[in-house]
């Protein structure tokens, strides 16, 4: 897991039931400013139900909070561990 939210290298979309999904490059990561806001907004539009990351900035946290999407931290873990952790309720909620 990348420590950063908006500027993370990859995005993985997981089905929490099966822990399977797809990964893609985060094309926003080299943007100038407001990258976290833009990514948060994209995730809202894609209909994600929860976000697992390392840390999240206040602006992106505002967007995710407004959309009712909880944010969890799993820095240093693998994606698989993070998904497992969320399913078992072991991750710490962060953000607002």
């Amino acid at each position: 897991m990348d420590g950063r939210f908006g500027r993370s290298e990859y995005l993985c979309f997981l089905d929490l039931e099966t822990l399977e999904g797809t990964c893609e490059e985060n094309t926003l990561r080299d943007g100038q400013g407001g990258v976290g806001i833009q990514l948060a907004q994209n995730l809202v539009r894609r209909g994600v139900k929860a976000v697992i990351t390392g840390r999240v900035g206040p602006n992106a946290a505002d967007v995710l909070d407004a959309a009712g999407i909880p944010v969890y931290s799993a820095e240093g873990q693998t994606v698989k561990q993070a998904g497992e952790g969320l399913r078992q309720g072991l991750l710490t909620q962060i953000g607002i």
């Binding site: 806001i37 809202v44 407004a66 959309a67 009712g68």
Partner: peptide, 18 residues
């Protein structure tokens, strides 16, 4: 400048523009 974020309404709630 990514200064706006549009949050469409979900489940009958109200939407927001931040």
């Amino acid at each position: 400048f990514n200064a706006l974020a549009v949050i469409p309404p979900v489940d009958g709630g109200s939407g927001k523009v931040l």
